[in-house]
């Protein structure tokens, strides 16, 4: 249990996917203008991450590993994710129209989100068990959502600020991201301190 909490919190806070691993920067910079769209994108990414992990883990464990095909993981994982996002979009559209109206907008944007592929490859490389992988994916998704939400707040302040013309747009957004990332650095070591310290 302690290991799981450690994985969850380090994926969420200390090793935040956006702010310290730089994965999923495109949606982070592109879709973080408003808090509700940040929340929508974050939720959709979290769900896709967990479900993608559910789909890729058995394939990795029972197909790639026994047949010594680990080097094919990139091709296999991206295919599964692309296929799966497509199916998920169709299923949600058909079965849960209200959910589709809320989150469906973000689904096509997720296929090429490097955070989703990143989390599956990272968990495979770390040789996590099934439960650990799911926990890692959940932590990564929650961390992504948190970063998006916090950043949308920061951004609503910088958007109307009077700054030099050259800094308008992307540069000011990146520098704001730098400040948020600096704030997250304050968490470094905190997850290990709380959950990992006892075992030594």
């Amino acid at each position: 249990m302690k290991e799981l909490m450690l994985i969850l919190f380090s994926a969420m806070i200390t090793d935040n996917f956006v702010l310290s691993k730089f994965m999923g920067i495109c949606p982070f910079l592109g879709v973080s203008k408003k808090a509700d769209s940040s929340l929508g994108m974050g939720t959709a990414v979290t769900i896709v991450m967990i479900l993608a992990q559910l789909c890729t883990y058995p394939v990795y464990k029972f197909f790639l590993l026994p047949f010594d095909l680990v080097y094919l993981r990139t091709v296999v994982f991206i295919l599964i994710i692309a296929l799966f996002v497509q199916i998920l979009e169709m299923a949600v559209k058909k079965l849960f129209p209200p959910l589709y109206r809320a989150l469906g907008v973000y689904l096509p944007l997720i296929t090429t989100n490097c955070a989703v592929l990143g989390v599956t490859i990272l968990n495979a490389d770390n040789e996590y068990t099934f439960i650990e992988s799911i926990t890692g994916a959940l932590g990564a998704g929650l961390g992504f959502t948190a970063a998006m939400l916090i950043f949308s707040g920061v951004r609503s302040r910088t958007e109307n600020a009077d700054i030099p013309a050259a800094f308008k747009g992307a540069p000011s957004t990146l520098i704001a991201a730098s400040v948020v990332s600096l704030a997250f650095m304050g968490f470094s070591g905190i997850a290990e301190g709380i959950f990992g310290g006892f075992g030594g």
Partner: peptide, 19 residues
């Protein structure tokens, strides 16, 4: 070298290119 500096450096470089 840390992530925060990466965002900052890239922001400044893009601003310089814009200028």
């Amino acid at each position: 070298v840390l992530p925060a500096g990466g965002f900052f450096a890239l922001g400044c470089i893009i601003a310089a290119v814009n200028r």
